[in-house]
Computed example of a mutant assay.
Amino acid sequence: MASPPHRPSLAAVIHRVSLSLLIAVVIPAVVFYAFFVLAGVWTAIVAALVWSYGAIAWRAVTRRRASGLLILAAILLTGRTALSAVADSTWLYFLQPVISDGVVAALFLLSLASTRPLVARLAGDFYPMDQELASRPRVRRLFWHLTALWAVLGLAKATLTLWLLQSQSLETFVLVKSIAMLAINVVAAFATIGLAARVARKEGLLGSPHPVVVAATRA
């Protein structure tokens, strides 16, 4: 008789999401700003990139899978750094998030037309997924709504970044953008958790075995 799959508690999911955000978003932003103040913009750019790849390497050495969020952040940061270095332009480095946020938002929007929106592809980093669970109507609607939410968020972040870059000094831009983007990402992440937790409770997924498997084992 197969044992029912483990379903993590809400606290475990929040811990996993928080850790992923800390490693992929919060710490690189703090590292960048600290080195920006202490040693200048190019040192800050390199330091943030080194942190991202160091985090991926550490996960590999300790035989833990790097989250999709961390890998995506590292890829975007690599592109920003390479283009800025080739053009020898720090202004281009700060402009690129406008483009990358817009591109990511467009990918989220385009994925809404597929059977697996982007949030569905990333969900396995934070909660154990299988085909049966991913195909449930409530879960599919959740993935669609969350993908739309993050697409709109990406467009909003791109717009805000462009406005700040055009209207503020570099020092003010870096400080305000770091705080604003971090706050937006954290609020959006926990809004995502809240919406997901609501659906998970209705589906009986938080901290309890899979209901279909339980029924089968009791038969």
Rank of each mutant, 00 (worst) to 15 (best):
G154Y: 01
P209H: 11
F108T: 07
P209G: 15
P209W: 12
A156E: 05
L10P: 05
V41S: 15
Y33Q: 07
A82P: 11
H6Y: 10
L182P: 02
G68T: 03
Q166G: 08
A158L: 03
E171M: 07
A196N: 00
L77M: 15
L95P: 03
L92V: 07
A216H: 14
W150P: 00
R121S: 12
A189C: 09
I193G: 08
L107F: 11
L182Q: 08
S167E: 01
R16T: 10
V187P: 00
I193S: 10
L107N: 00
P137D: 15
A134G: 13
V37R: 15
L72W: 06
V186A: 13
I184L: 11
A158D: 01
D88C: 08
G102L: 00
S114H: 02
M1I: 12
L77A: 14
W144Q: 14
R64G: 01
P4Y: 09
A158P: 05
G194S: 02
L162A: 13
A106Q: 05
V199E: 09
G79I: 14
A48L: 12
F32T: 12
A66P: 12
I179A: 09
T81Y: 13
P211L: 07
A106D: 00
M181Y: 09
V17Q: 10
L142T: 11
V41A: 14
A200C: 02
V186Y: 02
A87D: 14
W144S: 04
V214R: 15
L95N: 03
G79D: 11
W58V: 14
L76N: 10
I45D: 10
L107H: 02
Y127P: 07
E171C: 02
R201Y: 00
L170K: 10
V25P: 03
H15R: 12
V119M: 11
P137W: 12
R141F: 09
I56F: 11
Y127D: 00
S208Q: 15
R138F: 01
S89K: 05
I23L: 13
L112Q: 05
D101I: 00
S18E: 03
A60T: 13
E171G: 10
A151G: 13
G204P: 09
R80A: 15
A113Y: 10
V214Q: 14
S169K: 06
L92F: 08
A12I: 05
Y93K: 05
A134S: 15
A29N: 11
S100Q: 05
A44S: 12
I75D: 08
A24I: 02
M181Q: 09
G102M: 03
A197P: 11
P128M: 08
L95W: 15
Q166C: 01
A105V: 00
S114Q: 07
V30K: 03
L109S: 03
L49M: 12
A134H: 12
F126M: 01
R16F: 00
Q166F: 05
S67I: 06
A60Y: 10
P128Y: 03
L70P: 06
V17F: 01
A34G: 11
S111F: 02
S67W: 06
A57Y: 13
T161Y: 06
H15P: 00
V186D: 04
F108H: 09
L122Q: 06
R80W: 07
R7W: 04
W58H: 12
P5C: 08
F32I: 08
A29P: 03
L175G: 04
I179S: 04
R80Y: 14
